[in-house]
Structures are given as structure tokens and as C-alpha cells.
């Protein structure tokens, strides 16, 4: 290891820090984005600290059923006497985690498709992008419902939750594929790619060493902007009863509330708080993504 590589590494690190600082200067000017970030951090903290801050075990019967909010149960209890506040707190773990993993998987699939299509071009590009368009013409939720109900019969790795994540990701990848394809097309035309090819670098090397690192910021943003729709899809699936009935996400809590007629009976404490949690989490992610998009695309800054 020569001295120059060490210096170059240090240089890269300090450049990243400098870039982040610049990003934060723009991002922190956007009040809505900062509010979103704050909201998201609060929800994330709740999810991480769930076992310590939840007053009860959400899967245990801890009181009389169907109690309205009171001192012992701040958000009341459900039809079997489980504490709803504890359900909410634990539910944040499941909803956030499924949303996050599904977004990552969708981005991986989309990046692979988009990069191959953009880099190789020609017939490969045509075929892959046609497939992407077909996929986009499906009503997304219906396709996910269909995939999930079919796949749940023989769950991936024996776990329904993996199957659900996979089904959500399969619905969300086309957007990423289009995005990454356009970025790849742009990077491909840059002179240093041509230089790399001139000294005999293989396609694989160019893709891994030059294109992926340059597309990374865009890919990271793609993950973030998929989390909100992935969370909404997960909530809708759970609400319709597709999912592991023993894993209580926020959507699943509302599913149980609906099939036990909580809406008609008027047990608002059962279905309003989980819906509010979904909305706030999704909103926080939308606000953060808008802040980041504004940084990437300065023209937007003028339009807001």
C-alpha cells in the first residue's frame, strides 16, 4: 500500500464530509423537510425503544376488552383486551422495517434492470424497458395482492412476512429502473468512461467501478422515496387481510378493527391512532424526500 492511496482515501472521506455539509446547508433551509426529519427521527426512536417504552406486551390480554382510553390504558383496549398503545408502539417496528426492506429490494431489482438497459442499450434496452412499461400498466396494488396471495401458499423461507416484502418490492421496482436507466445513460457518455474503455477496462469493471459509485447518491434517494409507497402498500395489504395475522403492523391493527366492526360500534381509539401513525410516517418521508430532491434539482428550489 503506497502512501498516495492512503492520501487519496483521506481525501475522499473529507470530500464526502464536505458534500454532506453542503447538503445540510441547503436541506436545513427547508422548514418542511426539517419538520419531516424530526418526525421521522421521533418515530424511529419509538420503534427502536419499543420494548422499553411500551406499557404492556401487545400480544397479551392485559385488561378488560373494549375499554375506551383511560389511565391504565391510554389508548384503550381492543376486543380481546390487548393494550392498543403497546400495539402501536410495537407496530412501528414492523411497519417501518417492512417499508424499508421492501424499498431496498425494489431498488436493487430496479437498479439491476435500469443499469443493464442503460449501459448495454439496443435490443436489451428495448426489451427491458418494454417489460417495465407493461409492469407499470398494472394497477399496482392489485398486482401486489395477486402476487402475495399466490405466493403466501408456499411462503419464501417459510415466513409470510418475506413473501409480503417480496410482493411489495416486485410492484415498486419499475420506477427505479427508469430512473437508474436515465442516470446510467448520462454517466455512460462522460469522457472518463470512454477513457476507461480505451485502456481496456471490461464492461463489468466499468459498471462496478465507475457507474455504480457515481449513481450511488441517486440510488440512495431512490430507496428513501420508495419507503413511503412501500409503507402504504404494506398497510393496504394488511388492511385487506394479506399478511401474517400474528404480526401486528399498523395496517393489521386496522384490519382487525374493521372485521370486528369497530367503525360501526364507534371504537375510534382502535382504528384512528394506527392510521394517524401511518400518515405521519409517510408524510415525514415525503417531506424528507422533497428536501433532498430540492438539493439535487435546484430548479425546483425556485418553484416551491
Amino acid at each position: 500500500m503506497s502512501q498516495t492511496t492512503v492520501i487519496r482515501k483521506k481525501d475522499r472521506a473529507s470530500r464526502t464530509i464536505e458534500g454532506l455539509r453542503k447538503f445540510w446547508r441547503v436541506f436545513s433551509q427547508n422548514t418542511a423537510a426539517v419538520i419531516g426529519l424530526t418526525m421521522f427521527l421521533i418515530i424511529l426512536t419509538i420503534a427502536i425503544l419499543a420494548p422499553w417504552i411500551a406499557p404492556y406486551d401487545p400480544y397479551e390480554k392485559v385488561g378488560l376488552p373494549m375499554q375506551p382510553p383511560n389511565e391504565a390504558h391510554l389508548l384503550g383496549t381492543n376486543d380481546v383486551g390487548q393494550d392498543i398503545l403497546s400495539e402501536l408502539i410495537y407496530g412501528s417496528r414492523i411497519s417501518l422495517l417492512i417499508g424499508f426492506i421492501a424499498a431496498v429490494v425494489a431498488t436493487l431489482i430496479g437498479t439491476l434492470v435500469g443499469m443493464i438497459a442503460g449501459y448495454y442499450g439496443g435490443l436489451v434496452d428495448e426489451a427491458l424497458m418494454r417489460a417495465t412499461d407493461v409492469w407499470l400498466s398494472f394497477p399496482g396494488l392489485l398486482l401486489t395482492i395477486f402476487l402475495a396471495t399466490v405466493l403466501i401458499k408456499t411462503p419464501i423461507g417459510g415466513k409470510i412476512i418475506y413473501t409480503v416484502i417480496f410482493a411489495i418490492a416486485l410492484n415498486a421496482w419499475p420506477g427505479v429502473a427508469r430512473l437508474v436507466r436515465s442516470v446510467t445513460l448520462k454517466i455512460k457518455e462522460l469522457p472518463y468512461i470512454e477513457a476507461a474503455r480505451a485502456i481496456g477496462a471490461s464492461n463489468r469493471r466499468i459498471l462496478l467501478k465507475h457507474i455504480i459509485p457515481n449513481a450511488t447518491p441517486i440510488i440512495l434517494v431512490a430507496v428513501l422515496t420508495r419507503i413511503d409507497s412501500a409503507m402504504l402498500t404494506e398497510a393496504s395489504l394488511s388492511f385487506l387481510g394479506i399478511g401474517d395475522p400474528t404480526v401486528k403492523s399498523w395496517g393489521m391493527i386496522i384490519h382487525y378493527a374493521m372485521i370486528r366492526n369497530a367503525i360501526v360500534i364507534g371504537m375510534w381509539w382502535w382504528f384512528i391512532p394506527p392510521g394517524l401513525m401511518i400518515s405521519l410516517s409517510v408524510l415525514s418521508i415525503i417531506l424528507i424526500s422533497m428536501g433532498i430532491e430540492e438539493y439535487i434539482n435546484p430548479r425546483l428550489r425556485e418553484s416551491m
Binding site: 413511503d228 402504504l232 398497510a235 393496504s236 388492511f239 395496517g251 386496522i254 374493521m258 367503525i263 360501526v264 360500534i265 364507534g266 375510534w268 382504528f271 384512528i272 392510521g275 401511518i278 400518515s279 405521519l280 409517510v282 408524510l283 415525503i286 417531506l287
Partner: peptide
């Protein structure tokens, strides 16, 4: 519009059903 985008579709429907149907009794359930 951001709030509406963040609200799950089914939950918006539930809110309407609860408020206008169950509480106010303006619409059928």
C-alpha cells in the same frame, strides 16, 4: 395535498364512514 397523499386510501374511507356514517348518521354504513 401532501397530507392526502400520505393518508392511506382505506383509512380516509374509514374516517369518512366513521364521521359521516357512525357519528353524524348522515349516510348509511
Amino acid at each position: 395535498s401532501l397530507f392526502i397523499r400520505a393518508t392511506p386510501h382505506f383509512w380516509l374511507a374509514i374516517l369518512f364512514l366513521y364521521v359521516f356514517g357512525a357519528v353524524l348518521n348522515w349516510a348509511p354504513l
